[in-house]
């Protein structure tokens, strides 16, 4: 497999992972507010936040930035002459999104856990698999950028 084909495969995979990651859970809180209460499940994806019941109408739309970064990678695929720089741009943007998401989610998860331990010491709070898809997208996009043969 030529270097160019390897780069294309990696960048296509990065786009797919990033877009799939937007639909998956980024963080969650599973908590029981009383012994006689059913367990409540809260979660955040890149498009919606749910505290039980209807979605939060003001959910932060992290997905918009992820889609924009993925679009840069698609343009890199469609424009081989400038492909390496565009791939670098898309990869860097995606990395910036994921870095800021990690900073936010790490704090939000800790806040959910610390603020509710008295309510339910057995609560569960953590990352969903969405963040792992996004991290994988960054790694694969880096590989695609490095493998891209066209420097200009």
């Amino acid at each position: 497999m030529s270097r160019r084909v390897q780069a294309v495969v990696a960048l296509v995979a990065a786009v797919a992972l990033a877009l799939w990651g937007t639909t998956r859970t980024l963080s969650y809180l599973s908590i029981q507010f009383g012994l006689d209460q059913p367990r409540s499940e809260f979660f955040t994806t890149a498009w919606r936040t749910n505290f039980g019941g209807p979605d939060d109408p003001h959910s932060p739309l992290f997905g918009a930035s992820i889609v924009a970064a993925a679009l840069l990678l698609v343009v890199a695929l469609a424009w081989p002459k400038k492909g390496k720089k565009l791939a670098l741009a898309g990869t860097a943007m995606l990395a910036g999104v994921v870095a800021m998401l990690l900073v936010y989610l790490e704090n939000a998860i800790a806040f959910s856990r610390d603020g509710n331990l008295l309510v339910d010491p057995a609560l569960r709070a953590g990352y969903g698999d969405g963040i792992w898809f996004l991290l994988a997208a960054v790694v694969v996009a880096v590989a695609g950028t490095v493998l891209h043969p066209t420097w200009d």
Binding site: H58, A64, G90, T91, V97
Partner: peptide, 26 residues
């Protein structure tokens, strides 16, 4: 390449921050 990477990474980070700010505003 470093300039492009740094600037675009900041665009991505800012995108997340703006999404959070607009959510808080709402």
């Amino acid at each position: 390449y470093a300039a492009l990477g740094g600037a675009l990474a900041q665009v991505g980070a800012l995108g997340v921050l703006v999404a959070l700010v607009m959510s808080e505003r709402g």
